[in-house]
Computed example of a mutant assay.
Amino acid sequence: MVSAGEALFRPVRAGNAFEETVERLLQSIRLGVVGAGERLPSERELAERLGVSRVTLREAIRALADAGYVESRRGRYGGTFVNQSLPEPAEGTAGDVDAAAFEDALCLRHVLETGAAEAAAARTLSPADRRHLTGTLGEAATAGLADYRRKDSRLHLAIAEVTASGSLTTAMADARMRVNQLLDRIPLLEPNLEHSNAQHAAIVDAILAGDPVAARQAMAEHIEGTASLLRAFLA
């Protein structure tokens, strides 16, 4: 299994080291890879994995702290921790959405996520893979409204992780960030969340059963439902 952390905390490009470091750290937080109250990897580890200097890393962490995403703690059990409550995403209106970019994001998501579900179901999953899927499924199913988006994202990334393709996991994380920017503009509707949780269970059940066709179909139905809501509110 290739973890989302490995996929996200990959070397950044030298020309935009600070900006890309902020982007990677923020992705890991917004997608729930590092959850509320959890500690980011150590400064040394992050700098090595991202291929940046500690000065650049500290500047990026300071920027996220100033924005309300993380806090630094001193002492034996110190480090950089994700805040329990994250800043609200910027509000937007339907008029702010570029139609071509909107459809592009939905198309990319459909191709990547249906393919990931199919590929995951086609693999012989390890016990750790199976626990990872059922664990993230359970967290999404019991998440409150405030934390639902992150737990939902974490489950979808878990499906990519168990394909063992780092490139797919990276692409999924990037695509999911684009979709979340759209989802943050529409309300969380409890009946939809109940339906989504039932669909999540069907997707994971098909993957665990080793049924690629059913996994792809269940994911397609799930994604099409989300796309319908987005088009209703934003298109």
Results as ranks from 00 to 15, higher is better:
residue 3 S to T: 14
residue 7 A to K: 00
residue 9 F to G: 11
residue 11 P to H: 14
residue 11 P to L: 13
residue 15 G to D: 03
residue 18 F to R: 04
residue 20 E to S: 05
residue 22 V to M: 04
residue 23 E to I: 01
residue 25 L to I: 13
residue 27 Q to S: 14
residue 30 R to P: 01
residue 36 A to D: 07
residue 38 E to M: 11
residue 39 R to W: 06
residue 41 P to A: 08
residue 42 S to P: 09
residue 42 S to F: 08
residue 47 A to Y: 12
residue 55 V to C: 04
residue 57 L to P: 14
residue 59 E to W: 07
residue 65 A to I: 05
residue 65 A to V: 13
residue 66 D to C: 01
residue 66 D to Q: 13
residue 70 V to R: 10
residue 74 R to E: 15
residue 78 G to L: 11
residue 79 G to T: 06
residue 82 V to H: 08
residue 88 E to R: 14
residue 90 A to V: 05
residue 95 G to D: 10
residue 101 A to L: 14
residue 102 F to C: 06
residue 103 E to C: 06
residue 106 L to P: 03
residue 112 L to Y: 10
residue 117 A to Q: 06
residue 124 T to I: 09
residue 128 A to V: 06
residue 131 R to N: 04
residue 135 G to M: 02
residue 135 G to Y: 02
residue 141 A to K: 05
residue 144 G to P: 04
residue 147 D to A: 12
residue 149 R to F: 03
residue 150 R to A: 01
residue 152 D to K: 00
residue 152 D to F: 01
residue 157 L to Y: 02
residue 169 T to I: 02
residue 169 T to F: 00
residue 170 T to V: 07
residue 173 A to C: 04
residue 173 A to R: 05
residue 174 D to W: 10
residue 175 A to V: 01
residue 180 N to F: 02
residue 184 D to A: 15
residue 187 P to L: 13
residue 189 L to G: 02
residue 190 E to P: 15
residue 194 E to K: 03
residue 195 H to M: 10
residue 196 S to Y: 03
residue 198 A to L: 03
residue 211 D to S: 07
residue 214 A to C: 02
residue 215 A to P: 11
residue 217 Q to T: 14
residue 217 Q to Y: 07
residue 222 H to K: 07
residue 223 I to T: 13
residue 227 A to L: 05
residue 228 S to D: 14
residue 229 L to M: 10
residue 229 L to W: 09
residue 232 A to N: 05
residue 235 A to V: 09
